[in-house]
Structure formats: C-alpha cells, structure tokens
C-alpha cells in the first residue's frame, strides 16, 4: 500500500493532468460524434479558467460555484457563436471556431483584469485529484447514456447524412448547437479545474496548439464511444512521462507511436476492442469522424 501511496503523491500532478485532459477530449467528442469538426474548445477552456480564477480572487466566490459560473459563461458564449458558425461545414467550420479561439486569446492578451500577457498568477491550488476524477466519471457516464438516447441517435444520423437526418424530423442545426454548447460546458469545467491545479494561467496556454492537442486526444482514442477520448488523453498525456528515461529519443518515439496509431487504427484506440465492426464500417465507407 505504501508503494501505491508513494506513486500517487509522486505523480499526483500527472494523474490530475490525465483527468483534465480526458475531460477536454470528451468536450470535443460531443461535436465529433455529431460529425462536426470544431476547434473552439481551448477557448471555452480559457473562459472557464479565467472566469473561475477571477471570481475566486476578486469576489471570494467558493470554488464549486466559481466553476459553475465559468461553465455557464462558456455555454452562454457558445450558443450565439454556434448559431452563426453552424452555417458552415467541414474545414470552414474548423477554421471559424479556430478564429474564435484567436479572438478570445487576443482579448485576454489586451485586457488588464485578465493580466494581459502575464496572465494570472498565484491562483490557489484548490483542485484535488478526486475533484477531477469525480467530474470525469460524471461526464463520461452522462455522455455514455446520452449516446444511446434519441439525442445521441440524432447526432449519429447527422454525422452520417444531414439531409436524410433532417427528413427524419431532426432539426439539424438545433442538435449541432446542443452538441457545441455541451462541449463548451465540459471544456470550461476542465479549464476551471486545471487553473486551480497549476497556480498560473496565461493566454498562450489556450492557443492553437492546445486546440489541436485536444482534437488529437479524441481522434487517437476514437470516436465510437466516450471511452475513446479518455484512452487517447491518458495515453498521450502519460506517454511523455513514461518515455522520460529515453531522453533524446522521447519525442521521436512519441511521434512514431502517434503515427502508428493513426495509420493502423484510423478510427482510434477503442476500435481495438471492435476490430470486426470497424472493418465492416470501413468496407461500406461509412462516415469517418467529421
């Protein structure tokens, strides 16, 4: 038992980080499952992080309430944004959401209360590992159950064929918007947790690279069900640590593993558990993610 205790304390930051990244990967899973490639979740994460940290600092708002308000702020931003950007599809949608991320970053860089380029320092480390994992368990459970509901089926139908989905009575835009807002809420929650884990945040934490990283977690893990993004985030977050002894070869090996997964498991790690079904899907040329 001592060994496990030692392990946990030595790696508690990493363990918490795995959980936060899994939440972020789930946040983009929702839109990917509906066939929409959006890259705005780094910005929603930023909104959750900044809003919760600023509330705690200036108004003394209790941590859980600050997290909730941060998530609501992101959701309230996502709704009007989604109404606009879901006129677009595919790469255009991706670029529009990415541009939104840049706008958020530039606003953070220019605003005195968010600390401009320096960001916010001395954020109290309120987040405990169990906060992260309870959040992850709740989000994963809810998404898993929603996947089997009328809503999840409508998302899958939209991914497969929007025109056919609309003619089955599915209000396509509304369902896309719901996925987008749900993703924003989860991303902001993860942002709030991570801000209170790392002491400091700055605008560049939530830039383009972060947006892509979140997407890679989800895609490498796989979109068929919410377990995929969790696996993807866990592997890609822990891998650099596990490979640390290899020093100079670490980055090369990490890139290589990523490449192998994408080539041999293009629908993600979770498809290892359902190779047959995946092969059938590929044979009929069913919709890939996005």
């Amino acid at each position: 038992m001592d060994e496990i205790g030692d392990f946990l304390s030595a790696y508690s930051t990493l363990i918490a980080l795995v959980g936060v990244n899994a939440l972020l990967a789930l946040s983009v899973w929702v839109t990917l499952y509906a066939g929409q490639l959006t890259l705005g979740n780094a910005a929603f994460m930023a909104i959750g992080a900044y809003v919760s940290a600023l509330l705690g600092r200036h108004l003394g708002t209790p941590f859980p309430i600050a997290l909730v308000i941060g998530a609501i702020a992101a959701g309230a931003t996502a709704a009007p944004l989604g109404l606009t950007v879901f006129r677009l599809r595919g790469v255009y949608l991706a670029i529009a959401t990415l541009a939104f991320g840049e706008v958020v970053r530039v606003i953070l860089l220019a605003t005195p209360i968010t600390g401009k380029g320096q960001g916010l320092n001395g954020i109290p480390p309120t987040t405990e590992v169990w906060h992260v994992y309870v959040s992850l368990a709740v989000v994963a459970y809810v998404l898993w159950r929603v996947q089997g509901s009328t809503v999840g089926r409508a998302w899958a139908a939209i991914r497969e064929d929007e025109t056919a989905a609309a003619s089955q009575g599915i209000p396509v835009r509304r369902y896309k918007l719901a996925a987008f807002v749900a993703g924003a809420l989860v991303a902001a929650w993860a942002g709030g947790l991570s801000a209170h884990l790392t002491f400091s945040i700055e605008p560049n934490d939530f830039a383009f690279t972060r947006a892509v990283q979140i997407l890679v977690f989800a895609v490498v893990g796989g979109i068929p069900n919410p377990l995929g993004p969790i696996f993807g985030a866990a592997l890609l977050t822990a891998l650099p640590e596990l490979l640390r002894p290899l020093k100079d070869y670490r980055d090369i090996l990490q890139g290589l593993i990523l490449l192998l997964v994408i080539i041999y498991l293009p629908r993600g790690l979770v498809t290892l558990a359902q190779l047959r079904r995946t092969r059938r899907l590929q044979e009929i040329g069913a919709a890939d993610v996005a």
Partner: peptide, 20 residues
C-alpha cells in the same frame, strides 16, 4: 440515403424520431 454506418434497426429508430 440511409445512415450507412448505423444498424438497420437504428436507422428505423431515427425514422421514428418525431414520434418518440
């Protein structure tokens, strides 16, 4: 225009969307 990647029964369930 079927939902190719969904099962037969799931396709019909989607068709039932407005009555569910």
């Amino acid at each position: 225009r079927l939902f190719k990647g969904l099962s037969t029964i799931e396709n019909v369930l989607v068709g039932r969307h407005v009555r569910m």
